[in-house]
Simulated assay, not measured.
Amino acid sequence: MKNVGEAQEAPSGAPQDELATGERSTRNRVARSILDHGPSTVAELAGRLGLTQAAVRRHLDALVADDVVAPREQRVYGARTRGRPAKAFALTDCGRDAFDQSYDKLAADALRWIQRTYGGDAAVIAFARARLAEQATAYREAVESVDPDRRTEALAKALSKDGYAATARSAPVGEQLCQHHCPVAHVAEQFPQLCEVETEIFSQLLGTHVQRLATIAHGDGVCTTFIPKAPQPPPSPKAPRAASAKGAPDGAPTISQTTHNASASTAGRNPA
C-alpha cells in the first residue's frame, strides 16, 4: 500500500486541488508532531506518522522553505557514536504562530482588568493612545516627508510595514485609506476604543477630519477610512486689466467702462 505522505503521480482524473490539499494536510501533521514532541529527526517523524523517511524529508524541505521549521544539530547526551549526529527539526517563531495562540485572550483580559480597575472606558482610551504613540512617531515621519497630496499613500505604506496591509485609493471628493488586515481585530471587537483612537491618530497625522466607514472588528471585510480632499485656497484677487477697444488709443475708455460711467453718473436721477 502506498503511503499518503509519499510523492505520487496524480491518478488519472484526480483533481490537482485534492492532491494539493492532501499534501498540505500531511505537511501540517509533520509540523504538529514537532509541536507536540519537540525537535525531531526525520526517523522519529517517520516512525510517529507512518511515513517513509523520503516523504518526511520532502515535507520538511517545504516547511523549511516556508520558515515554519528549521534544522539544527541534535544534542547528544553520553558517549558519541561514529558519524555526524542526525539533524533535528524544530519550529521557528513563525511556525509557532501558525498554531492556535491565546494572545488575543490575554490582551482582552488585560484590557478588561484596566477598564475595571483604572476608570472604565477612559482608562482603555488612555492605554490605546499610549500604545499608538510610538507607532505614530514613525507614521508622522513618513507622512511629513512627502507632499500633502501623497500623505494618505505614505500613511498606507507605513501601516503596511506594521502588518495592516493598507492601501490608498481615490474616492469622490477625497481618498479612502483601506486596511485589509487588522492584527488586533479580535480584541477590538470587544474594545472598539482601539478603533476610535486609531481614527483619532489618523486625523492628527493627516491634519484633517477623517471618517471611519467600516472596520474588520465590526464584521466588515476591510477597515475603511474616508479622508476628504483638502479645500483649495481661493486665488489671490488680481485687478483685471481692461482690454482697449479695437482702434481706441491706449488709455481711452473702453465700451464697458463708458457704460459703467454713464450708469454711475445717472444713478439717483429721474430720467428726463
Rank of each mutant, 00 (worst) to 15 (best):
244 S>P: 03
251 G>S: 11
193 Q>Y: 06
131 R>S: 05
56 V>P: 05
198 E>M: 11
266 T>H: 14
234 P>Q: 08
214 A>V: 03
62 A>P: 00
154 A>G: 06
56 V>H: 01
37 H>L: 09
7 A>H: 09
133 A>Y: 03
99 F>P: 00
269 R>N: 08
44 E>D: 12
203 S>W: 01
13 G>W: 03
114 I>A: 14
242 A>I: 02
89 F>I: 02
257 Q>K: 09
204 Q>D: 12
21 T>N: 14
267 A>V: 05
247 G>D: 15
75 R>S: 04
236 S>T: 10
112 R>M: 03
116 R>T: 13
119 G>F: 02
35 L>Y: 06
170 S>C: 03
193 Q>W: 07
199 T>L: 10
261 N>G: 14
44 E>G: 14
123 A>T: 01
104 D>P: 06
128 A>W: 10
189 E>F: 05
15 P>S: 13
106 L>G: 12
118 Y>N: 12
54 A>V: 08
231 P>R: 15
35 L>I: 05
107 A>K: 13
180 H>C: 00
30 V>K: 02
202 F>E: 05
55 A>K: 03
199 T>D: 01
178 C>E: 13
203 S>H: 02
210 V>Y: 08
261 N>W: 15
2 K>F: 01
193 Q>G: 11
72 R>T: 15
204 Q>W: 06
203 S>A: 15
5 G>T: 05
136 A>C: 07
240 P>E: 13
22 G>L: 00
9 E>M: 15
25 S>L: 13
151 R>E: 12
64 V>E: 12
131 R>A: 12
126 A>P: 06
54 A>Y: 04
130 A>E: 15
132 L>D: 14
30 V>M: 01
79 A>I: 13
191 F>C: 06
9 E>G: 14
17 D>A: 11
26 T>G: 00
13 G>H: 04
242 A>G: 00
171 A>Y: 04
40 S>V: 03
127 F>V: 13
156 A>V: 03
147 D>S: 08
152 T>A: 11
14 A>G: 03
17 D>N: 09
257 Q>A: 07
188 A>V: 03
12 S>V: 11
141 E>G: 05
185 A>H: 14
87 K>V: 00
267 A>H: 15
250 D>H: 14
127 F>H: 14
201 I>R: 04
222 V>D: 08
240 P>C: 08
226 F>R: 00
193 Q>S: 07
118 Y>D: 15
150 R>D: 07
179 Q>R: 11
235 P>I: 11
47 G>V: 04
120 G>P: 03
20 A>G: 09
121 D>T: 09
159 L>Y: 10
23 E>T: 09
84 R>C: 00
154 A>L: 07
137 T>S: 08
209 H>F: 05
252 A>W: 08
78 G>V: 10
208 T>S: 02
128 A>V: 00
76 V>Y: 10
173 V>W: 10
22 G>M: 06
16 Q>N: 07
105 K>N: 02
137 T>D: 13
112 R>P: 03
135 Q>V: 04
6 E>H: 12
142 A>K: 12
133 A>D: 05
113 W>I: 04
258 T>N: 06
29 R>W: 01
245 A>W: 01
33 S>E: 10
